[in-house]
């Protein structure tokens, strides 16, 4: 019963904070959005814990709530966006957004409804602990792992190039 309650609590927190990232009625400041994004990510990490994906919950907090959000806040503060806040949201954009979200909702609803319900029988709960995940990562998924490391290197070189004074 308690995990169920925790699920509903964390899900509500996730969706509420997600909504406040996108459309905060009180503040149009990007810093507020970033702060609510941190909260969204933290409650998502809570949902990961409920799903027993402990390693991913830790990575979520470390990488997303830590590194990525610091990067976001750093850039927001660097750009000095004081004058950017007050502009009306375009009606057309809001309308287009509403229509596409409704279309997506219908699509997902149909997909969930039509999908076969054959879940495997509830066995022992799957533990997403560091050990089992690491074993899989370094045996079966070794090549993608190495490719991702190269990708990170490429991204690092690209960022350094992009932040040079004159792009030559």
């Amino acid at each position: 019963m308690i995990p169920d309650l925790a699920f509903y609590l964390l899900a509500a927190l996730t969706l509420l904070c997600g909504f406040l990232v996108v459309a905060n009625p009180l503040s149009r400041n990007p810093v507020t959005s970033a702060m609510f994004l941190v909260l969204t990510i933290a409650s998502l990490a809570g949902l990961f814990v409920l799903l027993r994906a402990f390693f991913l919950a830790a990575v979520q907090v470390l990488v997303y709530a830590g590194a990525v959000m610091v990067l976001f806040l750093f850039v927001i503060m660097l750009l000095d966006l004081g004058a950017e806040e007050r502009r009306a949201i375009k009606r057309l954009g809001l309308l287009a957004g509403g229509v596409s979200v409704a279309a997506l909702a219908v699509l997902v609803r149909t997909a969930i409804h039509e999908s076969p319900r054959a879940l495997p029988p509830a066995g022992p709960p799957l533990e997403g602990a560091t050990g089992s995940l690491g074993e899989l990562l370094f045996r079966q998924y070794l090549l993608p792992f190495e490719i991702v490391s190269v990708l990170l290197l490429v991204a690092m070189v690209g960022v350094i190039l992009l932040s040079k004074k004159d792009l030559k």
């Binding site: 994004l37 927001i76 966006l81 596409s100 979200v101």
Partner: peptide
């Protein structure tokens, strides 16, 4: 899956309706 779909819809709404580049980026993360 319902929570995930709702969160995805929120992100999509942000990408389409908001006009600030940084907020659009955050919605992508969502």
């Amino acid at each position: 899956l319902v929570v995930s779909a709702l969160l995805f819809s929120l992100g999509l709404l942000g990408v389409i309706a908001r006009r600030n580049l940084l907020v659009i980026y955050m919605s992508l993360e969502l």
